[in-house]
């Protein structure tokens, strides 16, 4: 199965093996026809309506503003509905360095996102700590705190790269299963078991 989006040839994508492997895994148990078509409809909706959370800590956030502006115009893909409340957003673009003091706040924001939720680690700071890796106050990659779906390198990444990253995310959503089957959700549970959630009382 070739997973791609409008006006983007399959060969133009990178990391096709990853998606193919994901599809293989999901197909391993076979698919019910009716359930499968429901899945398709839902995934069509999800993958075409990806609302970001307005969350930025530093330079990458400014490139995200540029992404919304007229030249790059993320509204073309329907991503411009940036929600300030995490309850209403679909994914979190962790744009910028995450430091020790911010880490619990970011985790809390992630917990507040409504399922299904996704994370893009934007820029080298979010991926690994980037130029600040050796600092005493910087988290060495946000995957210590939240599960990451797409890693987007750059310092900061160009808006074109951001478009590509969100399109990759959209492609990942396309092969998900909502009704039964192997689902990404289990992965989150594994992650949460390893990184226990604190209680908010």
């Amino acid at each position: 199965m070739e997973v791609t989006t409008k006006s983007m040839p399959y060969e133009a994508w990178k990391d096709n093996e990853y998606i193919e492997q994901l599809v293989e895994e999901l197909k391993a148990n076979g698919t019910n026809v009716i359930v499968g078509s429901f899945d398709k409809l839902i995934n069509w909706g999800r993958s075409n309506s990806i609302w970001p959370l307005t969350f930025a800590t530093s330079c990458c956030g400014i490139e995200f503003v540029s992404l919304g502006a007229a030249r790059y115009d993320m509204a073309r893909f329907g991503w411009e509905v940036a929600r300030s409340s995490p309850r209403q957003a679909d994914f979190m673009m962790v744009a910028g360095t995450i430091v020790h003091r911010m880490a619990p706040v970011m985790r809390r924001l992630y917990d507040q996102l409504a399922e299904p939720k996704y994370v893009i680690a934007t820029g080298s700071c979010a991926i690994s700590g980037g130029p600040f890796r050796n600092s005493y106050h910087v988290v060495k990659g946000i995957d210590e705190i939240v599960p990451v779906d797409v890693y987007l390198p750059g310092c900061p990444p160009r808006p074109e790269a951001m478009i590509y990253a969100i399109m990759q995310l959209s492609r990942k959503m396309k092969v998900e299963k909502f009704f039964g089957g192997v689902n990404r959700k289990e992965k989150i549970e594994e992650f949460l078991a390893a990184h226990p959630e604190e209680s908010y009382d």
């Binding site: 989006t5 909706g45 999800r46 115009d73 509204a75 073309r76 893909f77 329907g78 679909d90």
Partner: peptide
């Protein structure tokens, strides 16, 4: 430009939003 990818001229954009 505004929505133009989902469906012709982006007409199906809000339907996708609704399904989600």
């Amino acid at each position: 430009l505004g929505p133009n990818r989902v469906g012709p001229m982006g007409l199906l954009q809000s339907f996708a939003d609704m399904f989600k």
